[in-house]
Each structure stands twice: as structure tokens, then as C-alpha cells.
């Protein structure tokens, strides 16, 4: 995973005082100086060049920017990078194996045709990875799955295949299939 994080753009002249932050991103220790107003989503995408985390609304509705912050899925557009000082962050880039082999949730999405344009997909994957890692015996009824998935918008799939992918993910994570 080392070396996948970019160096970002050089600091620009500004009246905006910088704040030092350090955090662990995908297992790698990061130290940067950032403007307090820099959204965590922009920090991840533009400073760290981890562009798999997408931005769909910047007001916390669509879920495209979901990452895992200190062990809980959260919107990176509803956090400032300074708030992540000392935090442990996981982004979509950390989900597959180092050799690129897909995580069970990613495999399930592919098998079930759970993505079309792929823009919302990293957000769904992070939310589902977080949920299934924290719930060993998830309720796999349609209603329960849909309630968990609510909070992430998809404009392409109509969700049917994402529901199927959730169910398949749970099976794959338990070692079935």
C-alpha cells in the first residue's frame, strides 16, 4: 500500500493559517499542514491523491464520499481534515488486497452487477464493509438490507442488484460461496 498516496499540490499563498495534522490513512502515517476549512473529502482526494473517494453533493446526503473514520463509516464531506487529526482513516483504496484481489464486498458487487457508472460505488462499498465487519449476524431480509443501504444514493442501478450484492457479501464474508 505504501507509495500509493501522492504528494499533493504545493501550498498556496493565503491569509489562511495552516494547522498541522497527522493521521493514519490506509495504514500509512500522514503528516500535512492544512487549512482548517479543507473538507476531509478534498484532503483525501486532492492532498493525498486518493481519488477513489468521490464527491456527489457536499452536504451529506448522497454518501459517495463515505470512508471509515476510527472504525465507523462516515461522510468525508461532513468533516474537516483537521477533525481527523490523530484518526485512523480507511478509504476504498485499502479494501482490495495489495495484489488487487477484490474484497468479498467488491466481488459481490461485480458478481451481482451492483454497479453501473461506478461513481457511488466506493461509498456503498465502504458503508457495507463497515456494517458487515461490525455485525456478524446481519439481518438479511430485503427491508433490513434496504434500511442499511439508505443513506447512499445510486442513480443507475435502482438498488436491486446492490441489495443482492449486500446479501452475497455477507455470505462471502462468512466464507460461503
Amino acid at each position: 500500500m505504501a507509495g500509493r498516496i501522492g504528494q499533493g499540490t504545493p501550498p498556496r499563498p493565503s491569509p489562511d493559517p495552516r494547522v498541522a495534522v497527522s493521521m493514519t490513512v490506509n495504514g500509512e502515517r500522514i503528516e500535512r499542514e492544512v487549512s482548517p476549512r479543507m473538507l476531509l473529502s478534498d484532503f483525501i482526494r486532492h492532498e493525498l491523491r486518493l481519488t477513489g473517494t468521490h464527491v456527489g453533493c457536499e452536504h451529506g446526503v448522497c454518501g459517495c464520499c463515505t470512508v471509515i473514520i476510527d472504525g465507523h463509516a462516515g461522510r468525508s464531506c461532513l468533516a474537516f481534515a483537521v477533525q481527523a487529526d490523530g484518526a485512523e482513516i480507511r478509504t476504498i483504496e485499502s479494501v482490495a488486497g495489495p495484489d488487487g484481489s477484490l474484497h468479498p464486498v467488491q466481488r459481490a458487487f461485480r458478481e451481482c452487477h451492483g454497479l453501473q457508472c461506478g461513481y457511488c460505488t466506493p461509498g456503498f462499498v465502504m458503508a457495507i464493509v463497515d456494517y458487515l465487519e461490525g455485525n456478524e449476524d446481519p439481518d438479511l431480509s430485503d427491508d433490513a438490507i434496504r434500511a442499511v443501504l439508505s443513506g447512499n444514493l445510486c442513480r443507475c442501478t435502482g438498488y436491486k442488484n446492490i441489495v443482492a450484492a449486500f446479501r452475497r457479501s455477507a455470505a462471502l464474508m462468512r466464507g460461503a460461496g
Binding site: 486518493l50 481519488t51 477513489g52 473517494t53 478509504t91 476504498i92 483504496e93 479494501v95 482490495a96 488487487g100 477484490l102 467488491q106 458487487f109 461485480r110 454497479l115 461506478g118 461513481y119 460505488t121 466506493p122 462499498v125
Partner: peptide, 10 residues
């Protein structure tokens, strides 16, 4: 196309 999109490599 899926594998790259799923890894965040779109």
C-alpha cells in the same frame, strides 16, 4: 470495467 471501479481506480 467493474474491478477498477470497485477498487477506486476509476
Amino acid at each position: 470495467a467493474d474491478a477498477a471501479l470497485l477498487r477506486g481506480e476509476g
